[in-house]
């Protein structure tokens, strides 16, 4: 279990501030944020290699804020692996292990068996990450901190390693805190996602909530929401089927019905995959938002396509399958109708 309360850390001119979250034992936490957001600093502070300037770090229920890293029982894997270059792969894996045989077995399980006799400089980026992972797990920590560990691994190896690591995590009840830029990884692995921006924590929530209900427009844009509109909201007289917090949102000529927490709403966020496109109005849709527009652009990405619709003076991006684009005959200049459920319009 990792608990962080009002954590503040300084790293030169950079400061990480106001970070608070709780990650239960055996859970997988994801740390998201742009470069310089403080992700690595957060991991280093939890590991104890960087002192906390304020706030507390609790591991397994015990306050470890002032405990040195060698007594925290935390493994860390850095983005660049940082294998000790003067040691062989086997010496690296055994470095902190109390049971060398267990360390070697672990390395074999992770696919580093044939690398053991080699020098660190002979390894590829992906191989280094695997060895670094084995080295971090060899002392049997119950908390593992991962700083973009799969970044240098090829896609096939990444899938295999992710699966193996997930299995190990479940088997050993490891609590994992994982920095990644891969939103897919965040969605498939994470129980809790922590979003950092400019040294501050923006939001900590289950990944689904983070992506569906980002705390701010900046968070929504970072998390890849295609449609973020600035405007204002007014309370709506709730219908029988409406969720609490249903509001009417206006941005220029665009009018939407969405859901948010009443208060200072300034933005509407719609993910592209929540926009359903048709050539003309369907009679039976229960969606609260039906918008007509003209197709401005169609960009295909493999099996998917981004269709930009001009609705009044504002663009609305829909993510649909490439097959749908062909079926509907969506070409630039053609007219289309977009329907969006009120619950898919997040007001923040």
């Amino acid at each position: 279990m990792i608990e962080v309360a009002a954590l503040e850390t300084r790293a030169g001119a950079f400061a990480l501030r106001d970070v608070s979250f709780s990650l239960p034992r055996g859970a997988w936490g994801i740390v998201l944020g742009s470069a310089g957001a403080g992700k690595t600093t957060l991991l280093e502070t939890i590991a104890g290699v960087r002192p906390a300037a304020a706030g507390r770090v609790r591991l397994r229920g015990a306050d470890v804020t002032d405990v040195p890293p060698e007594r925290r029982g935390v493994g860390i894997v850095y983005q660049h692996a940082l294998l000790f270059p003067h040691l062989t792969v086997e010496e690296n894996v055994r470095y902190g292990a109390h049971d060398p045989e267990h360390a070697i077995a672990l390395a074999r399980r992770l696919g580093a068996g044939q690398l053991l006799g080699r020098g660190v400089r002979e390894l590829s980026g992906g191989e280094r990450q695997i060895v670094a992972l084995a080295r971090a797990l060899a002392p049997r920590p119950d908390i593992l901190l991962l700083d973009e560990p799969f970044a240098a691994v090829d896609p096939r190896g990444r899938t295999r390693l992710r699966r193996e690591l997930r299995a190990l995590q479940r088997e050993l009840s490891l609590t994992v805190l994982h920095v990644t830029h891969d939103f897919g990884e965040a969605g498939t692995l994470g129980d809790l996602a922590i979003l950092l921006d400019g040294g501050r924590m923006v939001q900590a929530a289950p990944p689904e909530t983070l992506f569906r209900r980002p705390a701010s427009a900046a968070a929504a844009e970072f998390l890849g929401a295609e449609n973020v509109y600035a405007g204002s909201a007014t309370p709506l007289e709730a219908g029988a089927d409406d969720e609490a917090g249903t509001m009417r949102f206006r941005a220029g000529s665009l009018e939407l019905v969405g859901v948010g927490e009443t208060g200072a709403v300034a933005h509407a966020v719609i993910r592209g995959e929540d926009v359903v496109l048709a050539r003309e109005h369907g009679g039976t849709s229960s969606a609260r938002n039906v918008l007509e527009g003209v197709v401005a652009e169609v960009v295909r990405h493999g099996a998917l396509a981004r269709v930009t619709l001009e609705v009044g003076e504002l663009p609305l991006v829909a993510t649909v399958t490439a097959g749908s684009v062909s079926e509907l005959g969506l070409l630039p200049g053609s007219r289309a109708v977009a329907t969006i459920k009120a619950t898919a319009v997040h007001l923040c």
Partner: peptide
Amino acid sequence: SVARTLGD
């Protein structure tokens, strides 16, 4: 830092 987390 890595060596410290490995017990040094």
